[in-house]
């Protein structure tokens, strides 16, 4: 465990909590893509099945349980508790265009052709593109609430920090996991455009809105 990995995990947690709190405090999930949230919940559930098979550390297991519970709670808030505020008309990304190719790829390119390993690979690939419905929704409505942009910032920061963590681990431990690294790179790149807008607009106190 190095500082970049820890900081990455923490910003991931911060992102998840920001989103939960935003929905809970405003009693509304307007502007949030329920589809992205379902994808993230699927990512956690398929990846953390190893909670039942191996024990790595108390930290590892507790974080996994927190991530899974929070992501399922978010889906519940969007689709059940605050469903009336869910902006389904703008959440029109076709998720099957992500899930089907990602599913196929995880069968073809993996470390080991076993059910657990294929599910892990599926979750890694799926996570890298799971934010697309949310970004698509923002591009459709042309704007995002500032708190939503903070959520996206921490989510992107998490992946960026993981990239540094992998460079670190490669140099100091000789460890590298090509599947995670390539997927992590893709994931980080998807946030670049957003990062640019975040720095040039949101951090200067303006609302994130896209030119018409």
């Amino acid at each position: 465990m190095n500082i970049f990995r820890l900081a990455g995990d923490v910003s991931h947690l911060v992102a998840i909590i920001i989103l939960l709190l935003k929905i809970w405090k405003t009693r509304s999930c307007a502007g949030i893509s329920g589809k992205s949230q379902i994808l993230f919940a699927s990512v956690f559930v398929t990846r953390y099945l190893d909670l039942f098979t191996i024990f790595i550390s108390l930290y590892n297991s507790s974080m996994k349980i927190i991530y899974i519970s929070c992501s399922i709670a978010t889906v519940y808030l969007v689709y059940f508790k605050f469903k009336a505020t869910y902006d389904g008309n703008h959440d029109t990304f076709r998720v099957e265009f992500l899930v089907v190719p990602v599913g196929g790829l995880s069968f073809l390119v993996n470390h080991d052709f076993s059910p657990m390993e294929i599910l892990w690979t599926f979750s890694i690939y799926l996570e890298s593109v799971a934010i697309l419905p949310q970004l698509f929704m923002i591009s459709k409505t042309g704007e995002a609430e500032t708190i939503t942009t903070h959520y996206l910032f921490f989510l992107g920061l998490y992946r960026g920090l993981y990239l540094i963590n992998w460079i670190w681990r490669y140099y100091f431990e000789g460890f590298f996991d090509l599947i995670a690294i390539v997927a992590g790179l893709v994931q980080t790149v998807l946030y670049c455009d957003f990062f640019y807008l975040y720095v040039t607009k949101v951090l200067k106190g303006k609302k994130l809105s896209l030119p018409a």
Partner: peptide, 10 residues
């Protein structure tokens, strides 16, 4: 090799 398959990251 055994460690290779253990995913210790989140």
């Amino acid at each position: 090799p055994e460690g290779r398959k253990m995913h210790d990251e989140l």
